[in-house]
Amino acid sequence: MDPLLKVVIVDESPVRSAIIEEGLREAGFTQVTRIEEMANLLARIYALDPDVIVIDLENPSRDVLEQMFQVSRIVKRPIAMFVDQSDAASIQASVDAGVSAYIVGGLVKERVKNILDLCISRFNAFSRLQTELDQAKTALEDRKVIDRAKGILMKAKNLTEEEAYALLRKTAMNEKKKIAEIAQSVITASEMFK
């Protein structure tokens, strides 16, 4: 590991790139820069003169980086770690995580492998956070729908809250559906009867 390696993170997601930067800094890399603005990307990268560039696979600007491969323009030729077929497991891990890296300074691959590994784990951590956030949002939405359906049932059938919930749950089990789906049907039906 070489803490003086200059690493540039190209990512339009500020949260994710902050997570990666933090990871790299914790691992001892001191020269980490984030680029979130894609305009004039190549000029920004040339100005920073990095050794390693990390970019997410959902970023259309990956094609911009390809221009660095054109020999006529610059001396330093980058290597894409992603397409080095000698390490299939590493490729699969990068694709699954959605990250790719380019080594610019003619460095030995092994010296920067831990950077990619670190980025892969941080990318995965970020998607886990994203998933958890999405699940929390869905749970909150579901809760609102179920509460409304309970209210409708309590009024229409003169039930207690517990009884209304038990009815929703029993119906969901019988129909092999989620309680939120049944609750949504109750709301839809009640709106049609209005």
């Binding site: 970023n59 259309p60 990956r62 094609d63 390809e66 992603f82 397409v83 077929q85 490729i91 694709v95």
Partner: peptide, 15 residues
């Protein structure tokens, strides 16, 4: 896909 690099690489590695 969002980039030709992705298309090329995913074709190349068999995805």
């Amino acid at each position: 896909e969002v980039s030709w690099s992705n298309v090329r690489d995913k074709l190349n590695i068999g995805l």
